[in-house]
Design a protein around this nucleic acid. Structure first.
Lengths: 188, 188
DNA sequence: GTCCGAAACTTGTCAATGGCTAGATTCTGG
DNA sequence: CCAGAATCTAGCCATTGACAAGTTTCGGAC
């Protein structure tokens, strides 16, 4: 028999949200469906997250933390900012559900403390990558170069995820992302 | 007294949807609220659009058509692909509501005929911009360069719209976009 | 002009959802 | 062992999307 206490409902609800988003997008998330998937009553999730936006806030925070981890790891592993960009795209594809929520602030509480902290971590990881660029590659305005790099990989990831890119590119986003990002980094 | 027939309910509903999305994002759109704003009964919009996704399909199609128009106009006006990219960003900012729906296929019917046709028009306008690049600027693989340019402006527009970019950049997206895009186009 | 089918719109209904309140069960620390 | 807190359930209400059936208006055929 199912015990009265779930054990780790918080994690179970987040996992259910990831599964639902992968199947039907963020719009398909229903608090009651998450509860059903976790095997609890329809109001149980609200106890842990407050409301529906609270669930997605937790997901966004988790996503920014994961992204910060992966960017930092990529930089330390390769010392190559190009690979940090590739890691950004890989994160978006491998953690599609998180990524789709993270950059849709109207779905969650944008000033949630955990979200703000995790987003700050991810920003620093990205800025650290920029700082590691050799002077000549960074160009006269390293800040703008960083915005350009971020825009490029973020845009590529977004377009890839919603199927806007031509299918002739193949099915390996990392390879294509590396080739595309290389064009920007070849700038004098 | 309000006449039984609205006159141009289709347009009124789309306008109401734009207003709502500008105020509360695409998640805040409710078919019944659109009906209230247009001053008709709650089921009237469905008669023109089928269902909620039908409304957003029409909005997406309208958006892709507008985008195609503006990209084409920018290319013919300036003959400069950089300015086509700037026009892309300007479109996203000026028609935020359309843009936020266009690249969220889970919100509408992705294989709606009007959507497919309009998207095709926009793709051709963008490809026309790429083709206008001088050989040396396009590099060895013009197709990849096009993907890079599209990714860059799309990513910049997306990040700008959801407030992810640092506020020190100022409040003029076109100026910043031009500077950022120039970095890519300076590639050999 | 009028008549008739089609288009536009209304009203009523149903299941599902988000959020709230009150209450039941289990855990935890002293 | 006990009391308070944390966790979860059950019930309720307003709102929503979708559908069905009926009403009003339009527009063309004659």
């Amino acid at each position: 028999m199912r015990p009265y206490h779930h054990g780790d409902l918080r994690r179970a609800v987040l996992a259910a949200a990831v599964a639902t988003i992968n199947e039907a997008g963020p719009a398909g998330v229903s608090l009651r469906d998450l509860a059903r998937r976790a095997g609890v009553s329809h109001a149980a999730p609200a106890h842990h997250f407050g409301d529906k936006a609270g669930v997605l806030s937790a997901l966004a925070a988790e996503g920014f933390d994961l992204l910060a981890d992966e960017l930092t790891a990529a930089l330390q592993r390769t010392r190559d900012f190009l690979e940090v960009g590739v890691a950004y795209v890989r994160f978006a594809v491998e953690h599609r559900a998180h990524f789709e929520v993270m950059f849709r602030p109207d779905l969650y509480h944008p000033d949630d403390r955990a979200v703000l902290a995790a987003r700050e971590r991810a920003s620093e990881a990205l800025a650290g990558g920029i700082g590691s660029l050799p002077e000549q590659q960074a160009g006269p305005d390293a800040r703008l170069a960083g915005i350009a790099a971020w825009s490029l990989v973020h845009g590529f990831a977004t377009l890839w995820l919603n199927g806007a890119l031509p299918p002739e590119l193949g099915d390996n986003p990392e390879t294509v992302a590396r080739a595309v990002a290389a064009i920007l980094f070849a700038a004098p």
